[in-house]
Computed example of a mutant assay.
Amino acid sequence: MNSNTITQILKELDFRVAGTLWIESKEGRFLGPGRVELLERISSTGSINKAAKEMGMSYKKAWEMVSSLNAQAQKPLVLTQTGGEKGGGAVVTEEAQQLIEYHRLMRERFRAFLEKESAMLTQP
């Protein structure tokens, strides 16, 4: 089947190919847009709780995501520190920064693929 066949089937609407991209294992999702955003916000705020609040997410959900990320990686991606004089906090590791960058580049390639496929829907 070629794109000419598809364009003959579709009405003349503004169709596009869309999708979301994540990395997963047998244990479930590992890294996708939401987890990347959580890591970035933890990095900027130094806190899982603050990152969760900024995202409109419960602390419990954010903690579950961090635990899942840490469990599926060879080294922890988020290090936590409890209590102390200044209270607790969280640090995103270098490995997490590398994964964030990898996911960003992967999404750029994916976006280019989606744009190419979308263009094929509009070609006669």
Score class of each variant (00 low, 15 high):
Asn2Glu: 08
Asn4Trp: 12
Asn4His: 12
Ile6Glu: 06
Ile6Met: 12
Thr7Ser: 15
Thr7Lys: 13
Ile9Gly: 00
Leu10Asp: 02
Leu10Gly: 02
Lys11Ala: 10
Lys11Val: 08
Glu12Phe: 08
Asp14Arg: 14
Asp14Gly: 07
Val17Ile: 15
Trp22Tyr: 13
Lys26His: 14
Glu27Ala: 13
Glu27Lys: 14
Gly28Gln: 00
Arg29Phe: 01
Phe30Ala: 01
Phe30Glu: 04
Gly32Cys: 07
Gly32Ala: 08
Leu38Phe: 11
Leu38Gly: 09
Leu39Val: 03
Glu40Phe: 04
Arg41Glu: 07
Ser43Pro: 00
Ser44Ile: 03
Gly46Ala: 06
Ser47Gly: 02
Ser47Val: 06
Ile48His: 03
Ile48Arg: 00
Asn49Arg: 13
Asn49Leu: 10
Ala51Glu: 09
Ala52Phe: 02
Ala52Asp: 02
Lys53Trp: 02
Met55Arg: 03
Gly56Gln: 07
Met57Asn: 04
Ser58Val: 12
Lys60Arg: 04
Lys60Trp: 06
Lys60Val: 11
Ala62Trp: 11
Ala62His: 09
Glu64Gln: 14
Glu64Gly: 12
Met65Cys: 07
Ser68Lys: 08
Ser68Asn: 11
Ser68Phe: 01
Leu69Pro: 14
Leu69Trp: 13
Ala71Pro: 10
Ala73Lys: 05
Ala73His: 07
Gln74Ala: 09
Lys75Val: 15
Thr80Glu: 01
Gly83Pro: 04
Gly84Tyr: 08
Gly88Val: 14
Ala90Val: 13
Val92Ser: 00
Val92Cys: 00
Val92Glu: 01
Glu94Trp: 08
Glu94His: 10
Glu94Leu: 12
Glu95Gly: 10
Ala96Val: 00
Ala96Glu: 03
Gln98Leu: 11
His103Glu: 13
Arg104Tyr: 01
Leu105Arg: 14
Met106Ser: 15
Arg109Gln: 13
Phe110Trp: 02
Arg111His: 05
Ala112Ile: 10
Phe113Cys: 06
Glu115Ala: 14
Glu117Arg: 03
Ser118Ala: 03
Ala119Lys: 06
Ala119Glu: 07
Leu121Val: 04
Leu121Tyr: 01
Gln123Thr: 12
Pro124Tyr: 00
